[in-house]
Design a binder for these strands. Structure first.
Lengths: 144, 144
DNA sequence: ACTTGACTTAAAGTCAACTTGAACTTGTAT
DNA sequence: ATACAAGTTCAAGTTGACTTTAAGTCAAGT
């Protein structure tokens, strides 16, 4: 398969595929002239990458998971990541609940709502950086 | 309070506080010479910002939430965000479960494990970008 | 023979959220 | 009076994950 077929099937632009190959996340098995040739199974790998990306893993972390530095897979790393996700899930759940609450809360300011303040205290302990866009244009209607 | 007190109490560097002020996320009530003076309640606001950041909101989105362009708060936006978080939580939950499964799965490759493949299909439908570091150095031991 | 169109590379650009650096100002301590 | 720590500004640098651009290659169709 050539790059455009993979692009089409995966939904990723060709530039991203080249970038991923450069980073070692996927491989092409050869060239036809200049053109890369891919096996169909990179699609599976790309699906896995997408999954991990959307779960908050960096490309570097994904790469680590793909290349067990021996025959054995790094099970400990997987469990550590799972625990991190667990913590993150709890945090997001708090945030979600507080958003839903805020949407119906009648306190004049959220800072005057005891429910909200309690949440703030709980949440204040965490410190790690997402920088996640989610889909902001959904509401603003702005094009990208 | 001056900037270093806020920095200390919030755990954020002064540079970040200046940056946040520039972006309109927090306000100083005046100056003593050149130095900014803050009211203690910016700490509450900073806690709220941290919470929202760690839940995946961008500074711009947080700003939108802080400045209801009238007396009414944007309840619709809050609910939309809550729904987005809901989707994200489901995804992270899938990822977490699959990581835990992978850690004990005996299939020679994850691609040969039906449980894992089923997950991939489900997850493949989402498409949004996190780029979240979580705490990768926890395992690698590398300094930043 | 020549024009497409799809690919290629390498380098530069983008974006958010900060951080860093250089040069400058101030209030307080000696 | 002077040094110093801690503030200030403005501009530029950083990081990760891509995207864009410019310039080139190449097989296929007319």
């Amino acid at each position: 398969m050539d790059i455009s077929e993979i692009a089409k099937a995966s939904g990723l632009p060709a530039s991203t595929l080249r970038y991923y190959e450069e980073k070692g996340l996927i491989q092409s098995y050869g060239r036809s002239g200049l053109r890369r040739l891919f096996h169909a199974d990179v699609l599976q790998r790309l699906a896995l990458i997408s999954l991990a990306r959307s779960a908050g893993f960096s490309l570097e972390e994904i790469l680590e998971m793909f290349t067990p530095q021996g025959p054995e897979i790094n099970r400990e790393l997987l469990l550590i990541k799972a625990d991190e996700l667990d913590r993150k899930i709890k945090e997001l759940t708090s945030m979600r609940d507080s958003l839903r609450h805020a949407a119906v809360c009648s306190a004049p300011s959220h800072f005057e709502c005891p429910k909200f303040l309690r949440l703030l205290k709980v949440a204040g302990k965490n410190r790690f950086r997402p920088s996640n866009k989610l889909s902001k244009n959904k509401f603003t209607g702005k094009a990208q």
